[in-house]
Design a protein around this nucleic acid. Structure first.
Lengths: 312, 312
DNA sequence: GCGATCTCTTTAAACGTTTCAACCCACCAC
DNA sequence: GTGGTGGGTTGAAACGTTTAAAGAGATCGC
């Protein structure tokens, strides 16, 4: 910038003015400056700008597992929406580990991100303490975190689960289990709890995964598809021996070879909304506590079928 | 930092010293400072630091399509490796569009990233001009860009394609087509060119996709799996009516329901190597021109079978 | 008692922007 | 001619660090 100023014979303040049009600058001067910028290939140093403005125009996305297409899709949409507003996106991977999550959040704080989005939260993470105390807006997707300082975007879990259970019981299932992602949990207790509630409403109890269920409701499509793989590798078949339901409706779920019955969530919409929510909060200069519930609906496909005879 | 200094009765320089251990500081002072840091919840402002050090400890990853698991996986590995060295990662989505790619690169330059990784390059992009002129190290994965200032990580495309064609011809195929990702191309001309070369070696020519091929080699697994879907929705079946080969071996490819014959690339290794290559270049203060070829091998599964009778 | 040495600490200048206040000059009203 | 107005420009401070250079006491050898 100093070089540009020198070359066009003006002060840096003037260069800054032609760049932002805050103060008026004579047409002729503007031209000279633009010329110099062009010749020197000048590109504004955003880090200096960030320092001065105390705003980095950067969002953090803290994602447990970038290989889960649902999470990836949300991150992607956030990036797109943010890009439109001139924001960049720092992604941080937690590997579902609360310790690295804390570590990553610290790093984001150090880099002074203007807002943070969690496409999912890891169990046992006291996530946003440090963020919230600093006034950094936080939006959480897929988990109904009840904190007056964080925004959330959720589907109506109990309605969705009600549809799932209704679908399964209509098919004659009564031994219904829940499968989570194995290692450390993501969507914490809400999804299995919703299942238990829906079952209870019908006088049923949850069946253990190892107690020979006839249907399994999985915490997400990746888990469901894995389950189908394990079942079929063991010589049984889906849906004949076991019905499987997923959550998310990731792209592969609708493939005819997979044909997974699942609860469809609109990741694109949810990601975009998350970005907009946090951007709005940033513009307004504080937290948000908005809670929106996104639409979701059961998509019945071929991975669910009638319960095995004699199992009602 | 000023607050910390004031609270512990020392100068900011001393605080800085206890933080980095550059200069010696008395044990007692160090203690007071650490205490103050703790009480105030101080966290170093990395943007000020970046400005002063003229290094942001940030990598850019320019990714055409985050929903392609191969790309996502590379990005993920880069993030992991970078995190270990205290680097953050800015992801930029190009949507396979050269214009937004240019835009994103400009944004990365403005933010003064220390290095950039392209998990794939979009056709027709004059990518790295601006980056290279500024001395920013660049590493490209999956495309053998021959530029003395960019590092590359590739598989041996012609060897891999040789294996594919050998496998297919052994099954009796001679009408072999290539399928790319439709819209704008990614891996530019190298993969189809390799196919043509391998065919030519056997006195065969490429068959058009619309000219009733008996086998199709796809530019990646996503395209292959899509193709299977389209074929089977139209009432034909894979591999009975058409053999399909992919590239990458993304996780779903090995699912028994998909069972895709494909060329396996080790995304984890390639991502890690890309990160290490660019980090090394940053440490050395300049470009890299290293070219490594990663291992790849054909994994034969159920999506390829004997050519239809009468088609030899 | 005096310079040298050593350990610890501070001062102040950078890094590259933005922006407030001041300045200059021309024009205008009176 | 004086004061106001307003467009165009600039000086300089600030943002929060790092670091070279200088300073301040001790300790020490002699």
């Amino acid at each position: 910038m100093h070089d540009v100023a020198r070359r066009s014979g003006v002060s840096v303040a003037t260069v800054s003015n032609v760049l932002h049009g805050k103060a008026p600058v004579a047409a002729q001067t503007r031209l000279r400056v633009l010329e110099a910028i062009d010749e020197l290939g000048y590109r504004r140093n955003e880090v200096a700008r960030s320092l001065r403005l105390r705003a980095t125009n950067t969002l953090g996305v803290v994602i447990p597992d970038a290989l889960n297409p649902f999470h990836a899709s949300i991150a992607l949409q956030v990036e797109r929406r943010a890009h439109r507003d001139g924001f960049a996106v720092l992604v941080a991977e937690t590997e579902n580990d609360p310790a690295t999550e804390a570590d990553q959040v610290r790093a984001l704080v150090g880099r002074r991100v203007d807002g943070v989005i969690f496409p999912a939260v890891t169990e046992g993470s006291a996530i946003p303490a440090e963020l919230l105390d600093r006034g950094i807006p936080v939006v959480v997707v897929s988990f109904d975190l009840r904190d007056s300082r964080v925004g959330t975007i959720n589907i109506d879990e109990s309605a969705a689960m009600e549809d799932v259970v209704s679908h399964l019981t209509l098919l004659g299932h009564s031994r219904i289990a829940f499968a989570s992602s194995g290692q450390r949990e993501e969507s914490i207790e809400t999804r299995p709890a919703a299942l238990r509630a829906a079952l209870a409403r019908r006088g049923l109890a949850e069946t253990g995964l190892d107690a020979d269920p006839t249907a399994v409701c999985c915490t997400n499509d990746v888990v469901a598809i894995d389950l189908i793989e394990r079942v079929e590798r063991s010589g049984r078949s889906v849906p004949h021996d076991l019905s499987v339901v997923g959550f998310d409706d990731i792209p592969i779920a609708s493939h005819p070879r997979i044909d997974l019955t699942t609860v469809r969530q609109d990741a694109e919409q949810m990601g975009r909304m998350a970005a907009e929510m946090v951007l709005a909060a940033i513009a307004a200069g504080g937290h948000t506590a908005e809670r929106v519930t996104a639409p979701a609906r059961l998509v019945v496909r071929g991975s669910t079928g009638p319960a095995r005879a004699g199992d009602a």
